[in-house]
């Protein structure tokens, strides 16, 4: 499968990563090589096989909806690059 610079640009936009021109070029070549290798999976007969997304046979884990103490807001906000009061600050969106 051919991976063009435009494909990488499109996927990078989905992933919200700004890439430099030389990164686009390098990645398109590398991804093409990696995906060609991954194409080996097409040889496997999976017509009768169900997918394994998780290795344990556990079902959904539910807990009671009870009030519990959690981390204090100031502790959580401690790492924020930009904060105000008890809120994270982001660039204005509207």
């Amino acid at each position: 499968m051919q991976i063009t610079k435009d494909t990488v640009k499109y996927v990078a936009a989905l992933a919200r990563i700004e890439l430099k021109e030389e990164e686009l070029a390098r990645l398109s070549g590398q991804l093409e090589g990696i995906l060609n290798f991954i194409d080996k999976l097409k040889e496997a007969d999976v017509s009768q096989v169900s997918p394994t997304s998780h290795i344990l046979t556990v079902n959904n884990v539910l807990r009671k909806d009870e009030l519990k103490t959690s981390l204090k807001p100031e502790k959580v906000l401690n790492n924020a690059p930009h904060k105000e009061g008890t809120s994270f600050v982001v660039p204005k969106v509207i």
């Binding site: 992933a15 990645l27 590398q30």
Partner: peptide, 20 residues
């Protein structure tokens, strides 16, 4: 900008491959 600057080369490669 944060993600383009903050992630190293291998991290970007894997995120792009995974997103693809």
């Amino acid at each position: 900008k944060t993600r383009g600057e903050g992630f190293g080369e291998e991290a970007k490669r894997r995120i792009i491959l995974g997103t693809f």
